[in-house]
Each structure stands twice: as structure tokens, then as C-alpha cells.
Simulated scan of single mutants.
Amino acid sequence: MSQVAKINIYVDATKIVGNPLLPEVYEILKIIRPGWRAESIEPKKFTDGITNLLMGYYEKGKFDEDVILLRIYGEGTEMMIDRNLEKKNVLVLSEAGCCPPLYAEFNNGIAYGFVHGQTLEPDTVRDDRVKRLIAEEMCRMHYVKPEGMEPKPQLFIKLQKFLNIYPDHLDTPEKQKRFVELLPSKDKILEDFSLLKSQLEALNCEIVFSHNDLLLKNIIYSKEKDKVTFIDHEYAMFNYQPHDIANHFCEYAGVDDVDFSRYPGKEYQLDWIRHYLVCWEEINGRPGSGVTDRDVEEMYVKVNKFALASHFFWATWSIIQAKYSKIDFDFLGYGIMKFNEFLACKDEFLSLKLPD
């Protein structure tokens, strides 16, 4: 596995707004690109995100040639994300050709390669060519078999860890009022967790190496290369195969402008799933022509049941963030929406029957 520079530097994200090329940032860049000079470096802010600050750096006039991304972790995110596992994920996926290279790690972030292209939007993700590229790339990632990692699904293990630190109150009167009035009780959340765990584990789904966070901004599309690339592998881990598909479909709703009516209907899902299953058979050395209507329908049922787990996972995650995160985002509001969507879909999706 490739060696990654370990740099004992802390980058203060609050200072980057006024000075994108902080001395400590330049020190990191000098190690990765020794030939770069400070006066020739251009910064570009990509996003504040809802977990990290992402900055890009490149030589003037060479944005199309070489960009180094610095991802500076949000405060408190280590409670939710195993950063050592994340770095291992990037190395494994980079060597498999599924993501850009990891160049360095510093005290509160990482430096890695940049993928040129456009992040997806609610309309572009539905483009016939793009959705097929996504299904194919997901197959490629699901086929990756990292050495030394046990293929054990992490969904409910991770969720249990979230529930162990789920807050019993929030820090301001306004937040606390919404917390009490608009969210299920902790007892009800634990009850639903047990229900989901028992029903979804009983499906005996295949376990694959999954991205687990394929929101639209984590998919880069290059029309010139006819390719999509997945980025931000913070939550990558072994998981149930239909969960990754389900989570992606749930993310059609968006993050900043949430609209759950964008969740794909059955006809769309069946078409998407059929293409995925054909790719999955072929990448495993079997003829794609062997995929049957029953296979597609079975995966459709499993995907929609796991959509409930996706809503539940990110709802729980959001409420914890509402308690601990310093990032300027309405995590509480997002968590409330996610829990409401979980409850709205629960009976319908759990009642779906596998084909005979």
C-alpha cells in the first residue's frame, strides 16, 4: 500500500476565510509539491460542507492540470467518523482506481487529489447515461475487497454507537423546544432501531464494501471522460449491498433544499437496479443475461426496506451533530425531516414482500 506523508501541523479553519494560504497550509503544500512557490499558488474554496471545510490549491493557470485538496475536519467529527479507517479506505480505493490518491495527513485533516468534473444536481443524477455510470461505479466499489478488513456489515454497529451518544437535551431553549416537541422519544427511537435491525438482518443480503454516503455532491461527473467518480469516503465500510443503493436513492432529495418527492419511483428504480445487477454479474465473471425479473424485484424490495435504515441513520447522526457540531448548519431541522420521512415510509416499506 502506498506511503502517505504524516505532517505534524494543525490548520485553523476559522483563519482560512481571511487568509486561504496560511503559513501552515503552505508548509503542507511544500511537502506534497516542493516545486510550488507561494506567490504562484491560487486557492479555491470548494465547500464548507456540513462536516468539513474543503479547500483546493493549484499553480496559477494550471487548474486543469494539478489541484491539491485539503480537507479540514470539523470539530467533534471524530465522534462520528473513524479517521484512521477513512485514510485506509482512500488508500485501498485509490489503488483500485476508484478514487484520487491520498498524499498526506495532518493533525486535523488530509490532502488528496482532485477530480475534474461537475457535482450532480437533482436533474443531472436522473440523466439516463449518468445513472448508468453511477450503477457501474457502485459495482466497481462493491467488488473491492480490502486486505485485512473483515467483511462484516457495519450499519447496525455504527447506529448502536450513535444511539449510545444520542443526546438527552440540546443546549439552547429554542433547540430544546424543537427537540422535545418535534422528535420521537429516545424509547421510541430504540424501539424502531430494534425493529429495523431484526427485519433487515433477516433479509440475508450480500455484504460488500460500500460508500454509504452517496449524496449528489459526492459524485463527480466528467462528460468528456464519460465517467463518474465517488469522493469523500468518510463513511466507507462493509455493509449490506442494497443499503448503498437505497442511501443513494434517498439522497435524490438533496441536503440544502430537501424535497423527498424526488425519491425515485418504482419504474425508475427497477431500471436502475436491473443495470446494476447486470454489471454485478459481469464483474463477478457471470453472464449479465442471467439477471431475471424476479432478481430485480427482489432487490427492489430490499432497497426500499433499507431506505428506512438510511433515513434513520442520518436522522440520528444529525441530532448528535445538533448537540456537538460547531458548523453553521441546521442539523436539528435536517434530523427532524429525516425522522419524519422515516415514519412516513415505515409501514409501506416494511410491508413490501419478497417475490416467491
Rank of each mutant, 00 (worst) to 15 (best):
16 I>T: 15
16 I>P: 04
19 N>T: 15
21 L>S: 13
27 E>L: 10
27 E>N: 12
30 K>R: 15
30 K>P: 05
35 G>K: 13
36 W>L: 12
38 A>C: 07
45 K>Q: 12
45 K>G: 06
50 I>M: 08
50 I>K: 05
54 L>F: 10
56 G>I: 08
57 Y>P: 14
59 E>T: 14
59 E>P: 09
63 F>A: 07
63 F>W: 04
65 E>Q: 13
65 E>C: 07
66 D>K: 09
66 D>H: 12
68 I>F: 08
68 I>C: 14
68 I>D: 10
69 L>S: 05
72 I>M: 10
72 I>A: 07
73 Y>W: 12
73 Y>V: 04
75 E>M: 04
79 M>Q: 14
82 D>W: 08
84 N>W: 03
86 E>K: 08
87 K>T: 13
88 K>D: 06
88 K>P: 01
89 N>L: 04
91 L>D: 11
96 A>H: 04
98 C>V: 01
98 C>D: 03
99 C>K: 03
100 P>W: 04
100 P>A: 06
101 P>H: 02
101 P>M: 00
101 P>Y: 00
102 L>V: 11
102 L>N: 05
105 E>I: 15
108 N>V: 12
112 Y>V: 05
113 G>Y: 00
113 G>K: 00
115 V>I: 06
117 G>Q: 01
118 Q>I: 00
118 Q>T: 03
120 L>S: 06
120 L>Y: 01
122 P>I: 02
122 P>A: 06
124 T>L: 09
124 T>H: 00
124 T>Y: 01
124 T>R: 06
126 R>Y: 02
127 D>W: 01
130 V>P: 01
130 V>D: 00
131 K>C: 12
137 E>D: 04
139 C>V: 11
141 M>A: 02
